[in-house]
Deep mutational scan, measured.
Amino acid sequence: MDPFVVLVLCLSCLLLLSIWRQSSGRGKLPPGPTPLPVIGNILQIDIKDVSKSLTNLSKIYGPVFTLYFGLERMVVLHGYEVVKEALIDLGEEFSGRGHFPLAERANRGFGIVFSNGKRWKEIRRFSLMTLRNFGMGKRSIEDRVQEEARCLVEELRKTKASPCDPTFILGCAPCNVICSIIFQKRFDYKDQQFLNLMEKLNENIRIVSTPWIQICNNFPTIIDYFPGTHNKLLKNLAFMESDILEKVKEHQESMDINNPRDFIDCFLIKMEKEKQNQQSEFTIENLVITAADLLGAGTETTSTTLRYALLLLLKHPEVTAKVQEEIERVIGRNRSPCMQDRGHMPYTDAVVHEVQRYIDLIPTSLPHAVTCDVKFRNYLIPKGTTILTSLTSVLHDNKEFPNPEMFDPRHFLDEGGNFKKSNYFMPFSAGKRICVGEGLARMELFLFLTFILQNFNLKSLIDPKDLDTTPVVNGFASVPPFYQLCFIPV
């Protein structure tokens, strides 16, 4: 058959498939802009700032609406009420993970971030239990974070109060905490193996944040037939998995079943207990991918939040002064901060919360999916439909947070200066898919920041009023603009 005829037939089939998918069930789905064949609503979305586009569309179609990214149908949730109703009140029905062709290629359905069903539930339950087990290797997770915080302070001392970009050092600290939990080992910041790991993690975040990856996920045929950065992403992930597998083999040879040292040991012990169960989800494949998931999810998000926190503290020296006064009063100079201190430091706690609220790190979270046909607000959402959640619409709700575009710790303080919780605080998402490392991340943010401010004054290279804190939105995360500062020993 003539190649031209084959091409026309293929394009015609794709067009018909697109029209059929977009028209099927439209009477039951939430409203939304009319999609174009094949490309859907992509032309109506700013790929570099999806969150802003969703906010604009919500003003037209309401808090629940339908979009098509290519052939992929998505239902968008915008605003606290619908997000709570879906992710919390109907948590089980909305607990699936959205379709990610690239991740599915890399992870093969294993791990904790992109798995679904029984596998996801069992691996998540085990990971939560293990991360909360403060007795691994007779050292609590808090001990590990405190140790890394001391190392971080010593690295900052080496800058000798000269101007520096904190990106690298602030990236090393949370990565080392995860390494300590998974591998029972922290690395020197100049260790070549550690630097290679950091390089792969950072490069992957840069790649994932590009519009090209959005295109690959919406048109998965590209993955096999086109060159691009997605190939580098898959190569980096394969490198990390190979490295983790080597460490798993080392653990198998040296493990003491009665004295687990780290996450890998705990997983291997669980595998041993379930070795007679042919349906067990505790396999080497799941261990390797879960460890890679924890490394990827637990490094860049925390380091970016820390980097943004220091920029905001530079911009608002009056806030920094209040935090340091609270540190001096509650902790002093002669001991290290600990998590028990947080309950006695409402202002510092409010500042950490406000940093996370203000920066809105992951504006749309990772997409969910419905696990069955769901009736939601008089609409029928078919099983498997991807759910896109606007966390921006919750964290920047102007009824809950007056002047949401302003950095103001009073958003989390009552009139008496006591810490005030808010149900709208969802930087880790909400419901059954809430970030498994939430507790660890909150511990790291509090301890790293208090250790830094206990030991250093922060000095800006320019007038604080002239510092730009506008986030650089890159399609996946909101990151701070480049800046330098000086760490002046107190």
Rank of each mutant, 00 (worst) to 15 (best):
P3T: 13
S12Q: 06
I19L: 12
R21S: 11
R21Q: 11
Q22D: 15
Q22V: 12
S24Y: 11
K28R: 15
L29E: 07
P30F: 03
T34E: 09
S51C: 07
S53H: 04
G62N: 01
F65V: 05
Y68V: 08
V75A: 03
H78R: 04
E81K: 10
L87F: 07
L90W: 15
G91C: 10
E92D: 15
F100L: 14
P101G: 12
G111M: 02
I112R: 05
K118P: 13
S127M: 15
F134T: 14
F134I: 14
M136L: 14
G137L: 12
K138F: 07
S140P: 12
E154K: 12
T159F: 10
T167E: 11
I169N: 05
C172T: 07
N176Y: 00
V177C: 07
I178F: 04
K185G: 11
D191C: 09
I207G: 05
W212L: 06
I213T: 12
I215V: 14
F219I: 13
I222Y: 07
T229V: 14
K232S: 07
L233S: 05
L237R: 13
L237M: 10
M240G: 04
K247T: 09
V248N: 01
Q252C: 09
M255F: 12
R261N: 05
D265H: 02
L268H: 02
L268G: 00
I269K: 09
E274V: 08
N277M: 12
T299W: 10
T299I: 07
T301L: 09
L306Q: 02
Y308W: 14
R329K: 15
I331G: 01
R333Q: 09
C338G: 10
D341N: 05
G343M: 10
T348C: 06
L361H: 05
P363L: 01
P363R: 02
T364Q: 11
Y379W: 11
P382W: 00
T386C: 07
T392E: 06
V394W: 02
L395Q: 03
P409R: 00
K420L: 09
N423K: 12
N423V: 12
M426Q: 00
C435R: 00
C435F: 02
L453G: 04
P464H: 09
P464F: 10
V472I: 14
